[in-house]
């Protein structure tokens, strides 16, 4: 991870690809819901830029034209300007429109349009200082019981292997594999303090709060190897609470499952 960086990397503003997903500004987006978020961010910034440049030109013009100099008298301008009022109303209308027609629908679909759990890959993500535990239900699609009293150095999620549903459960640390083009539902919680599950390339962020379970869904449309970041200060090693986020082809995903199942059966023998 010790990338040598020149002051400005060549790909700072280059189009993002799976091989070069990061730069200055928005990273690559490989999620199906992320386009709406990016569109919102882009529109807002063009709007801000337009306002700022407009104000800025007016401002600079005033600074020069109305500078104090011999023979120049200030004009108190006690009458009312109409144009700024229109501008104010325009800004307000823009804000209402962007909220009602873009921001609220995008957020609503991110929050509410959960796929049916039968059609989706469901995973549980348990954050702890300073790692991401990923729990897959295995082939039966059912999560085994977990019990905090069973948590130890190796069984970091306290999975009860005696439970019938738990026999085929897989869990990994700092490694989230998902198949491409399949909807994923993640149940996110924390064992200790508040963390935040952040997938920069997926436009997904969700706090992991102890005592409650939050739920997000996402679907990747490109394969590649990316990062899970912790976005909430969680202690002195917050900076290295980094996980791998791997979007696999369906074949590669199956291979990952087979590999994990093999390791599981070897461990239980």
């Amino acid at each position: 991870m010790t990338e040598t960086t020149s002051w400005m990397p060549a790909d700072a503003f280059a189009p993002r690809t799976a091989e070069s997903p990061y730069g200055w500004g928005l990273p690559l987006n490989i999620s199906t819901h992320g386009a709406g978020i990016d569109q919102l961010i882009n529109i807002l910034h063009w709007f801000c830029l337009a306002l700022f440049v407009g104000w800025g030109l007016y401002f600079l013009y005033c600074l020069v034209r109305f500078r104090a100099r011999p023979g120049h008298q200030p004009n108190p301008m006690l009458n009312h300007f109409k144009l700024p009022t229109f501008l104010e109303v325009g800004v307000a209308i823009f804000e209402v429109a962007i909220l009602v027609f873009l921001a609220a629908p995008v957020w609503g679909s991110y929050k509410n349009d959960f796929p049916d759990e039968k059609d989706a890959l469901v995973v549980r993500i348990t954050a702890e200082q300073f790692a991401w535990n990923v729990h897959y239900p295995g082939r039966d699609g059912k999560f085994g019981k977990t019990d905090i009293n069973l948590i130890d150095g190796t069984n970091t999620i306290g999975l009860d292997r005696n439970d019938a549903d738990a026999k085929d459960d897989i869990f990994t640390i700092n490694n989230l594999h998902i198949p491409v083009n399949k909807k994923v539902i993640a149940y996110i919680h924390s064992k200790d303090v508040i963390h935040s599950f952040f997938l920069p390339v997926m436009r997904v962020k969700q706090d992991a709060v102890p005592g409650m379970t939050n739920k997000v869904w996402f679907e990747a449309n490109q394969t590649g190897s990316f990062e899970i970041a912790c976005a909430q200060l969680c202690g002195n090693s917050h900076f290295r609470m980094r996980g791998q986020f791997l979007v696999d082809t369906p074949e590669a995903y199956q291979a990952f499952l087979v590999e994990e199942e093999k390791a599981l059966s070897e461990a239980s023998q």
């Binding site: 978020i37 709007f47 909220l99 921001a103 957020w107 962020k205 909430q232």
Partner: peptide, 14 residues
């Protein structure tokens, strides 16, 4: 503005 809208905040928060 982008931070005040929840959808944009998903990416920009924190």
């Amino acid at each position: 503005l982008p931070l005040g809208l929840a959808a944009a905040d998903i990416h920009l928060h924190d």
